[in-house]
Design a binder for these strands. Structure first.
Lengths: 252, 252
DNA sequence: TCTATATATTGATTCACATCAAGACTGCAG
DNA sequence: CTGCAGTCTTGATGTGAATCAATATATAGA
């Protein structure tokens, strides 16, 4: 099975950052997050040559599915995606949310098969990076090799953070941690750290944090009553960042 | 801070596989697990040159600690180690157990700092692989580069398995899964898949699976009553492998 | 626009595991 | 062998989140 990129997708609308659509890595405003490399102009050109920029991916469309042949890793250009595994009895474990500048698909390298599925939470665009090309280029560019070792290592440490969160922290702490994580990642992209729209549903949050929808909803209500957050459906405003920090670290 | 290898360690006793002590990768009986590479003789020699074989590590001794400078990754030669993180309130999250042939320490690459600690559960020996040497050699040997990408990817998929286990499975299912995992890893090393001695304490198992000691103990008692396992302190015998499988997969 | 369907909130009840508590076993030091 | 500290087991009780249930709100489709 091959890659599930949009084939019949429309061109990007005016909201979807047209200025990013035909860019090269050299002038992509996300490169500081995605590829913080000290590369020669020549090197960037080589990198650009192997990267394929896709047409937009519609909401709920799969980028790849668990079990698909592994061909590429993907950098998010716009929109948000979730990676998830489906358990034997059909429940869904979300293993990560991926925002612009972040890279997903690296769990497929070990078996040449994707170990999880990736689905778009809203209209999105990605850069596809064919892995064999990346490997070849990495032998020629030590800084690129190092960068990918680091990216994979980061994925490992983030997974270990989640493991700890799931096994040691209460529902309040888990939700607070996720809100802080999203806030931080927004700030890194020069967006507001205090006001944002959640791209994922309550169900997705629950499936990520190991909680039911009801519990997630109750935590949001509680946080609202404590005036830590203002919650209006998916619209979030952090009213008390310090309180949120405290809530995330309470006894953990 | 540097590496915490045994400096004053004694030489290996007769039980500790002396035939592995002065080996090269070329004739190490674990190489099929650790480095399943189609390498030229010449390549193996180069690899041997960068790998340092340590004196034995005593029980409870640290190989590295969270926050230490990252220098090397380690292959387990004998014994078992656990990797763990300490939460702000002093509790311990075990992120993995490492048996002979397995590689640990890769979470340190992303920040040049170890993100977790590693401690020996019994007398052990490891091969230290300095990472900068490994990087250099990887640019020259594409199959080695690929192997390490795969190893790191495997760590990611295993962490994701644990995430799913922790957030979707009951105490019974978690313990059953761990017993199956240990059984499988024993078999890969040509040891018994049905009888083994657990190198870790009940507390360690609890801290890995997100359970209390009491719960772990109760699960073992239950499994014993159901005649799935025979449990004699750390000595385990799998009496009903199929039943154990079933228990591990029940509703998940 | 109106309807249908998915998503979200809130409340009442249940349950699996944590916590608290006590005793038994193990293994090492003297 | 004896004593002690650490580890493990088992029982009684408590609790945080799941489940069950009902309603409210939002979103998509006709």
């Amino acid at each position: 099975m091959t890659i599930h990129l949009a084939e019949a997708g429309e061109t990007l609308g005016p909201k979807a950052c047209t200025h990013d659509y035909q860019v090269s890595c050299g002038n992509c405003r996300l490169s500081a997050i995605c590829l913080p490399l000290a590369l020669e102009n020549d090197d960037i050109e080589q990198l650009d040559n192997i990267i394929q920029r896709s047409k937009p991916i519609q909401k709920n469309q799969h980028l790849y599915r668990e079990g698909d042949d592994f061909q590429s890793v993907y950098a998010v250009r716009s929109g948000t995606l979730k990676a998830y595994k489906t358990t034997d009895d059909g429940r869904e474990q979300v293993t990560g949310f991926y925002f612009p500048g972040e890279i997903l698909g690296m769990d497929g390298i070990s078996n040449n098969t994707h170990a999880s599925s990736a689905k778009s939470l809203e209209t999105a665009a990605v850069c596809e990076i064919p892995f064999t090309s990346l490997e070849k280029l990495s032998t020629l560019m030590p800084s690129l090799q190092r960068h990918f070792f680091q990216l994979m290592s980061r994925e490992i440490t983030e997974d270990q953070q989640l493991i700890t969160l799931l096994s040691k922290n209460s529902a309040d702490e888990r939700v607070a941690s996720l809100m802080l994580s999203i806030s931080t990642r927004n700030a890194r992209r020069k967006l507001s750290a205090t006001q944002f729209r959640l791209p994922m549903s309550r169900v997705d949050i629950g499936n990520y944090l190991g909680l039911t929808v009801e519990t997630v909803s109750r935590v949001f209500s509680r946080m609202q009553k404590l005036e830590i957050l203002r919650v209006d459906n998916k619209e979030i405003e952090i009213l008390d960042a310090e309180g949120l920090q405290e809530m995330a670290n309470m006894g953990g």
